[in-house]
């Protein structure tokens, strides 16, 4: 049961052939070759596959692609500024060494991105709650929280 489907990813419409049993992660990675989104548990348990759907973080590994057709999807590939410069959040991750093996990083970034859009001045505690479903085995989380705090509006202003 194949179908032609259009996905709005990172602001662009992309056409591809899918089947209903494909998840959004499968389509993004295997069909659209946006491999920045990772599959680490394929069960909704770890956040590695986090993408934004209409601005909220979801686990693309358990999201059926058919149900994502008319939604706005954002992936890690869409984070950098036009022209390729890193966003403030990405810069902060790089500066703080918040990406070790990097396998959780895309999901962390997308979760943090959603948080900072809805709450540009989060407290450290709010940051922790937001990323509490994103598992990272490498960093011990400290540098990730540091990085997100450095990318908050308050920190940006202080730096300016």
């Amino acid at each position: 049961m194949k179908m032609l489907a259009t996905f709005n990813v990172n602001g662009r419409d992309r056409d591809t052939v899918i089947a209903p049993h494909m998840t959004l992660a499968d389509v993004l990675r295997d069909q659209l070759r946006l491999t920045g989104t990772k599959r680490a548990c394929t069960g909704g348990n770890c956040g590695a596959c986090t993408v934004l759907m209409d601005g909220v973080p979801v686990c693309s590994c358990i999201q059926l692609a058919v149900n994502a057709r008319d939604r706005k999807i954002e992936t890690v590939e869409g984070l950098a500024k036009p022209g390729g410069d890193l966003s403030a959040l990405q810069e902060a991750f790089a500066r703080n060494n918040a990406a070790q093996c990097g396998f959780c990083t895309s999901g962390m970034l997308m979760t943090a991105e959603a948080l900072l859009r809805s709450n540009p001045r989060p407290t450290r505690e709010e940051v922790k709650v937001a990323i509490s479903g994103n598992i990272c085995r490498c960093t011990g989380y400290v540098k990730i929280v540091d990085a997100i705090m450095e990318a908050t509006a308050a920190a940006q202003e202080a730096a300016e």
């Binding site: 909220v56 973080p57 686990c59």
Partner: peptide, 9 residues
């Protein structure tokens, strides 16, 4: 609900 993303879906 843990993980929180599930609450969005």
């Amino acid at each position: 609900l843990y993980p929180p993303h599930i609450g969005n879906m």
